[in-house]
Amino acid sequence: MIELNSKLAQTIVEKMMTVIPYNINIMNSEGVIIGSGSKDRINTIHEGALRAIKEERMIEITKDEEYVKKGVNMPITYEGIIMGVIGISGEPSIVKPFGELVRTTAELLIAQENVASIERIKEKEREEYMFKWTYSSNDYTKEFIEKGKVFNIDILIKRRAVLIVKKKGIVSNDIFIKNLSINEYHINLEEERLLLFIKEERLTKYFNKLMEDVDLNEYYIGVSEENFNMGKAFSQSINAIESAVKLKLSNNIIYYETISYIFAILECKAPENMLTLGKRFYEEGMDGELIKTFTAYIEFSGEMNRVAKYLNIHRNTLNYRIEKIKNITGKDIKNYFDLIYLYLSYFLYSMKMECANEQ
């Protein structure tokens, strides 16, 4: 239950006294003045309020006494409980209608504040549920499923986790969430990360609409496989983006299924000869120039004109770099087997280096 606090009480007093030419006091449920046109009286006991609370009725005081001025004192109630007392100084017959007006206003504001407080609590509980849904990879219990229904969330619908990471700056959430549909959700992780849960059948439409409003070159977007378990889906979306960053992929939307085989390989120990090759390419890749050429060659499926255009270099320069890669690694990337072998060697060594740095 919300309480009648001093901030709300003083706000009521100041607003009402702009239209009512009499001093107003508001007391709490213990008869202490917590809002007043005479601020020197705040935090003092109001005798008329104590009587109104004790007798649970309006008290009229017809003449000034030592500690009490004439006027009316009306209990403020909410759901049958006395929350405090409104006191207006003046001739009771004159100020009584004003007292009724102030009391009604106070009771409405208390009710409004109580509803708002309940909504805030519900929203916080919903937010906590969403985070549990996001970070738990365990099977859902019956209790957890039913709790979702309380918030109108059906967690037994397959969705994809779409993690949006801005390369620099803050993600503008409104742009990304405005096209979400029923049974699709968003979670604010940090200023530069936003997580969406989107239904499979709507994913293509969502991205098509998104590209009308957003320059995707400013973002990495990791997309999980379709899943019931959003904790597992979230992990996949993270892995998709981390792979894009480590491999310097130019594509901004990275689907986990396109790189999932890499994680399957990582579950086994990488052969030493592959790590050695990856190390050589990593260290001798001309400060990243050959590596960038290599990853672009993979992404554009070896289409030389597209690769050269993307890298903004002449076709002859591209041929020179491909030959340089062959000289360094002994692998001809125009040969599919060599291409796959070098790709895995480079990735496995990069992952090994990343793990070493984290430790």
Rank of each mutant, 00 (worst) to 15 (best):
D154N: 15
Y341L: 12
T134V: 05
M83F: 13
Y297Q: 00
T276E: 15
G330S: 13
M304D: 08
M353P: 00
K70W: 08
L163F: 14
G84Q: 05
T258R: 02
M130D: 03
R306K: 11
N335H: 04
M130I: 12
D338E: 07
S89C: 11
K167G: 02
L156H: 10
L348D: 09
M130K: 10
I45D: 10
K15F: 07
L189P: 08
R193N: 10
I34P: 09
I182A: 04
I76K: 06
D40R: 04
G288T: 08
F131G: 00
K69M: 13
G31I: 07
L275I: 13
G80L: 02
E257I: 14
K167F: 08
V68Y: 08
M211D: 11
K63Q: 15
G330F: 06
L163C: 09
G71R: 05
N28I: 00
K269M: 11
S224M: 10
F337P: 03
M16I: 04
F207A: 00
K178H: 15
F197N: 03
I241M: 00
I241H: 01
R51V: 15
R193Q: 12
S29P: 09
G80I: 01
I265S: 10
K279W: 13
L203M: 09
Y220W: 15
T18Y: 12
G231R: 14
A106P: 13
I26C: 04
M304A: 15
E127C: 02
I253S: 02
R103K: 15
Y67K: 12
I177R: 06
L249E: 05
Y206D: 08
A244K: 06
T18F: 15
M351W: 10
I241Y: 02
S36I: 00
G80Q: 11
Y129Q: 09
T258S: 10
I157M: 10
S36Q: 02
Y256Q: 10
Y297T: 01
K279D: 11
T329R: 00
K232V: 15
P21A: 06
I53E: 01
V165A: 10
I86Y: 01
A111K: 09
K248Y: 03
L311G: 06
N335W: 12
N305W: 14
L290Y: 03
I2R: 05
S250A: 10
D40G: 01
F176G: 03
I265G: 08
G31H: 02
M130L: 10
A356G: 02
F207M: 12
E299T: 09
N28W: 07
L194H: 15
G302R: 06
D154I: 09
N229R: 10
L342Y: 04
E354M: 06
K142E: 12
G84I: 01
A240T: 04
L109C: 05
V150D: 11
N188T: 14
L8G: 09
M286C: 05
I81C: 00
I175P: 15
K54H: 10
N138V: 00
D215W: 14
